[in-house]
Design a protein around this nucleic acid. Structure first.
Lengths: 246, 246
DNA sequence: AAGCCTTTGTGAATACATGCACGAAGTCAC
DNA sequence: GTGACTTCGTGCATGTATTCACAAAGGCTT
């Protein structure tokens, strides 16, 4: 099964830079859009524009997968879609479980962007008895007690954690113990996992905070108004509550 | 208003690396957790562990804001919270409008992590007549026609776009024309904006695709099974639909 | 079939980020 | 006050990512 590992792909494939991997889905999306418009061939310049990157960067990124372009012409859209999909592992189906069916979990369960890319949501789990049994996006919410069973029975390989922060680490421990090695975490905590397990984090408020930083910068430096520097230290900030519900 | 731009802050502040800015919210969160546990002082080693980073990196990051630590002791939690908050611009309130009140927009409207960090949701807008008028998280959904009015009247400075992909660019153009210079985009498209406008993107499916890539890697190379390389090029991939509803 | 034109793929230069390792600066005990 | 000890702040080396710029490669026209 793992026989022909590094067969084709001479030096490509081994060690595709992370930064490149992170951009491949963006290229893929742009390519799909072109495909729908009936475009069959695209230059690095055009595709780069559609993806919002520099064309040299795009070419270098693609060169990591192999040489799939034709000089003087560009890239064949359909073929490139296939190559990137394959590289990203989207030619196979991935079985996903969503743990935590609050507002966000619900949104994720109904998100069309998953199913269309080979991600099959095979389980919705929650600890809240009031939610268990409800049907969300055509699928019943199951009790968190069944977590290990669901993972084993349905071959879940990716866990999406959308629980409150307080529950996230223990849920994570359980899915990892059950054999899951890829976790997508929406809870606002840093999860610790053993080596060999990948965790990616999506944090809705971190992005806003980064925007706020730049926005403030445009308006003229941090603490620009009122006492800047080491003024009164507020003691009211302690009322932040991390137990936000997702 | 832009008068005292680069005033205080000698060499700090100017040019805090992006990578550092992106980590500050994580540190802040870890610090809040410590604060709740009554910890008043923390070493770089401890805080780094809580934030999931290397301690040297943490110290270097913090050094960009100034020297707020005490050698031999560590950092005073409360003071550091204040300094980071100030640097990120969280000591002032930011007025946010959420455009697109589908599943995701609803989840965002109810997300506790915004309000607790100085982000005030002052408007929910949607084009769907069936949704307009509904009350979400204690706030009425208004018609998208009122977008410019809402932005102007309430002083919206950050727009959160959670519309379907097809609507995102035109919504973006409108908020930018109305004077907004910070956009958080959840729609799966690359938005183009004039210079001076910041766009950050949160893409739920991109993260999954990155996980899939690594997961596949663990299992033994891309396309490891079946015809690898340049086999049959599927023509069915064209049925991807980008008009996912958010 | 020869030459022109376009566009790729990549070497080299630059910029950015990470992590080590250690001197400097402070605290605490006595 | 003095010395031992802890921990910060940072110079330097290493690694990673981006961008430029151009030669090599192919198609297209005549």
């Amino acid at each position: 099964m793992t026989s022909r590992q590094t067969r084709n792909r001479d030096r490509a494939d081994r060690g595709i830079p992370e930064a490149t991997v992170a951009r491949l889905p963006v290229y893929l999306r742009a390519l799909h859009a072109l495909q729908e418009r009936g475009v069959s061939t695209v230059s690095s310049e055009e595709l780069a524009a559609a993806a919002g990157v520099n064309s040299a960067k795009l070419r270098k990124d693609l060169s990591h997968l192999g040489s799939y372009g034709t000089r003087g012409v560009g890239y064949e859209v359909e073929y490139l879609v296939y190559q990137i999909s394959r590289e990203l592992g989207l030619t196979q189906d991935w079985v996903v479980a969503i743990i935590g069916v609050g507002n966000l979990g619900r949104a994720l369960a109904g998100y069309g962007g998953f199913a269309s890319r080979g991600f099959r949501v095979a389980g919705l789990l929650d600890a809240d008895e009031a939610i268990v049994g409800q049907e969300i996006a055509g699928m019943p919410v199951e009790h968190i007690d069944r977590l290990e069973d669901v993972i084993a029975e349905r071959g879940v390989s990716i866990a999406v954690i959308a629980t409150p922060a307080a529950a996230a680490q223990s849920v994570c421990d359980r899915v990892v113990a059950a054999g899951v090695t890829s976790v997508l975490n929406f809870a606002p905590v840093v999860l610790s996992v053993p080596d060999g397990v990948d965790v990616r984090k999506v944090d809705l408020s971190i992005e806003l905070q980064i925007l706020a930083f730049h926005e403030q910068r445009k308006a003229g430096g941090p603490g620009g108004y009122e006492a800047a520097g080491d003024g009164d230290r507020p003691s009211e900030t302690a009322q932040y509550v991390e137990a936000v519900e997702l």
